[in-house]
Design a protein around this nucleic acid. Sequence first.
DNA 1: CTGTTAGCGCGTTCAG
DNA 2: CTGAACGCGCTAACAG
Lengths: 329, 329
Amino acid sequence: MVSIRDVAKHAGVAISTVSKVLNNYPNISAETKEKVNAAIDELGFVPNTIASALSSKKTGRLALLLDVNRHAQSVDEIPMQYIIGAINKAKELGMDIITVFFTMIQEMNVDETVRYFQSQGIEGLIVCGLSKQDVTIRRVVRSGRFKTVLIDAPGVSNDTSSIHIDNELAQYEVAKKFVLESGGSKILYIAGKKNGYVSEERMRGMKRLAWELGLTVYTRTGGFSELEARRITMKYAGNKDAIICASDLMAIGAMKALIDMDIYRPVCGFDGVSLMGYAGKQMHTVKQDFQNIAACAVEELAGLIEGRSGREVIMPHELIRIKYLDVIS
Amino acid sequence: MVSIRDVAKHAGVAISTVSKVLNNYPNISAETKEKVNAAIDELGFVPNTIASALSSKKTGRLALLLDVNRHAQSVDEIPMQYIIGAINKAKELGMDIITVFFTMIQEMNVDETVRYFQSQGIEGLIVCGLSKQDVTIRRVVRSGRFKTVLIDAPGVSNDTSSIHIDNELAQYEVAKKFVLESGGSKILYIAGKKNGYVSEERMRGMKRLAWELGLTVYTRTGGFSELEARRITMKYAGNKDAIICASDLMAIGAMKALIDMDIYRPVCGFDGVSLMGYAGKQMHTVKQDFQNIAACAVEELAGLIEGRSGREVIMPHELIRIKYLDVIS
DNA sequence: CTGTTAGCGCGTTCAG
DNA sequence: CTGAACGCGCTAACAG
């Protein structure tokens, strides 16, 4: 392995000079800079991130915490989009990301988790979809030992930012468009989780609309589960005019139930996952750009690490209509 | 940050002794081991992986190379399953994984890629679904600088293992069961990619069956694309008895085409993705356990790193029938 | 069985 | 503007 020392020797300068060239320090003559770069090229020198991290105490390593059930044959489109967005942006910024699942952390206590990240040289955390019962993670975040960006969860502090779309507004908007278009006033609203942050916000949006349009809204929580949404629809959709769901997956469940019940009711979703297309239906929904959200989270985290203060970032959303052909074409 | 030195002082032993305790070296008396462990607990010491890696030259870092189009609203179930399986196993073995996408590497040349991995202290690569035109990655692998496990691609050497199901057999089996059950002898076979490894193997299985049962098989390559499979089906399915696809995604495309054409033909898939359930159809297919395959790949890679020689590992597959309710229940 | 001594490859003063 | 020297936290021979 060719090291910085070899480069220095080859270029006829001191090690520190090479280091300075590498890290773009000022006060290096263009001439020596050239010499050094030439030597680097000739020797095929590769700066060793590990040594650099040890010495500088800056690792540039982030952890992306995701909530996926490892055994379920679940539909993991959203986590995957987060991963893609985060990794690409991290690469761009010269950082690297390790992906961690909530399930792994659930097997550890706060201390172990902190130690795990610490020993790995993790400087920052991006936590996706934290809910109120994820106490361990919550405490890890609050320990303040890591800069953190929370996606879809509140919590801003000096070293914690929060990033999400305006869930209340989005739910309000999409539901309004949907209701005005499909008519009807007796609505079945299948919400997310009780105590879920985004769920509550979306619920508020729904309530606001109900008040505004004088709708009768019957609400149940489906836990973002397709199956549960299906059950709820079976049970309560019969005497309603339309169904509004707090996620696309639940909307699919609702649609399946309607098919089984052999009745038609318009359905409205939320998230804009491409999976919807496979359900073969046309539907109003809110589209979130998960990749972009994750990318912004990485940038935000880089900012926190560099010393900026935490803040709340609201991402844009879009109202769309997913159609059968959207996926295929 | 409390370091190994502090622990040593606190326990009244030498630094190296602590190190030995940490790494479970032999020849340490139970007594001093206790002392050291006590000190570790009291001080809340966290071994620094980075320093350890620098010193020992063993990083325990693997890269998982995945082929996902970053911009496509693609269906990423399979990559996600690989990620989950690999990460969980890696954690279990005390290694860590960074995920890398083919697209990132395509922007680099061989040298840059090797350097990138080297500088990150990557010791091993798990490459999923390498195809013949991925020349850069191919060369990186052949450079022999990294231990490598190839999932779904051939190539065994001293420091390279290959791991995959028996594609020929699986295609043969599922197609046979499918054909015998649904009847008919004029088959449209939508293969994967020309020059794709798994594609060719599956094709061989199909040919063997055709020969054995005296089937007439009309073959087109759909490039594992849903849209392409759809086009092919539109064009050629009319005068066939059944359609066999080299992937579930293409099977979905075929089904959609059949719906559009308003004709019925039985369809057979391959992979066993849960996504199939959303298409709302019942279908024969081959089920692969992607999580398990990835987990085995990690283990295999760990073995290679420890000095074992490369080899070929054949994973089991299953013949299943995906039904409408499989996903939901 | 334990302690001493060298580094691993790099970043960073601080003299020159 | 440059270079010598030290140390990051740990592992790995070697002595004892």
